[in-house]
């Protein structure tokens, strides 16, 4: 007999309100695995909105997790800015040559029109289909790249650091156009039916940017951007460490923060308690070769460290589970949550 007394959406909203729901909500942030479900190549799968919507519905039915994920792949935004996407048979599509070849290109950058960008229209269509199918049963999580992190794909990491440190005026100009795009893109997804937006911001992590610099850059960008997004947001550091800035991130107005498996989850939870929900932090890379026993132990340990009092969603540490993670590990995660995640059992 099922012990569930809440829908996925109720469960997630309860934990976001820092209260304990019936069980620990868990997000399997699966993208490419939908292609396996539909017996397609990754490229074919992402070519149609219907495929992604169907893949998400099937995967939630199979694993019983608490969200649908309307994220296609990270370079979908770069594609809208005029960049290319390189498909792979065994991994996420990657961004091709940077669209900003020299700093001078920043002066002429124009914010892409979402309605005129077929790649983005496809994501919106997938979101609409998912919303029609799932209604209010489970949240649909949309994704944007933060204006502060998008330049890694627009111009490459090294060139972006050079810009940040040597060209403050052009840096501000790039942030301004990126912020405009990010707000438009997030709000379009919310209008299409997304419940919340995952704001991917790895460059703001302490792994990449020191806190004093973050406070002058990524923090200000996030505060301005999140204030204009018409729905709840979760900031994801995509494997980057966040403990030194987690209180600052909470002050940007975000409802949750995705943290790394390299961090002490207990310490992260203590720093976030009542301020922001913790999302994480199973090791997505190592997960590929977890045994069922190890999977159960990892899930149990994360729940023991962070679930008390709500404000916790179990997830991977990166925001995208690698293609190489087998179905039986995903199933074992689900089984472990359904074994150890009940609040009433404690």
């Amino acid at each position: 007999m099922s012990m569930e007394t809440m829908t996925s959406l109720q469960r997630v909203l309860t934990t976001l309100g820092h209260k304990e729901p019936d069980r620990v909500p868990f997000f399997l942030l699966l993208t490419m695995h939908g292609a396996k479900e539909l017996n397609m190549t990754i490229r074919e799968y992402f070519s149609k909105a219907e495929n992604v919507a169907e893949g998400q519905i099937r995967m939630r039915k199979k694993y019983g997790h608490d969200c649908l994920y309307s994220f296609f792949y990270a370079p979908v935004e770069v594609e809208a800015w005029g960049g290319s996407v390189i498909y792979s048979e065994d991994g996420p599509p990657n961004s091709g040559e940077p669209i900003i070849g020299s700093f001078a290109d920043i002066k002429t950058l124009r914010v892409p029109d979402i309605k005129q960008s077929p790649c983005l229209v496809k994501v919106l269509e997938a979101t609409r289909i998912m919303k029609k199918m799932i209604k209010d049963e489970a949240p649909i999580i949309g994704v944007v790249m933060s204006p502060f992190s998008l330049p890694v794909m627009q111009m490459g990491f090294s060139q972006y650091f050079d810009l940040m440190f040597a060209e403050p005026i052009l840096f501000e100009r790039l942030m301004a156009v990126n912020e405009e795009f990010c707000v438009n893109w997030a709000n379009a997804q919310l209008e299409a039916g997304a419940t919340a937006i995952c704001y991917f911001d790895p460059v703001s992590s302490s792994t990449i940017t020191p806190r004093d610099l973050y406070l002058k850059t990524g923090y200000e960008v996030a505060k301005r951007t999140l204030a204009r997004i018409n729905g709840p947001t979760a900031t994801h550091l995509a494997s980057g460490n966040g403990l030194p800035v987690v209180a600052d991130i909470a002050n940007t107005g975000t409802a949750a923060v995705g943290v790394s498996c390299n961090e002490d989850l207990l310490a992260v939870k203590a720093a976030c308690r009542s301020k922001t929900t913790v999302l994480g932090n199973l090791n997505g890379i190592e997960m590929r070769r977890w045994t069922p026993e190890q999977t159960e132990n990892e899930v149990k340990s994360a729940i023991q460290q962070a679930a008390a009092g709500g404000g916790f969603i179990l997830s991977d540490n990166h925001g995208e589970i690698p293609w190489q993670v087998p179905d039986d590990v995903l199933m074992a995660i689900s089984q472990a949550v359904h074994k150890w995640g009940w609040y009433s059992k404690k």
Binding site: F157, S158, F161, M164, F165, S206, T207, I208, T209, P210, L213, N241, L243, P244, N262
Partner: peptide
Amino acid sequence: DWDKGLIALSQVYM
């Protein structure tokens, strides 16, 4: 120090 989480990658790069 980057490995220990004491400094950031941008500092290592620069």
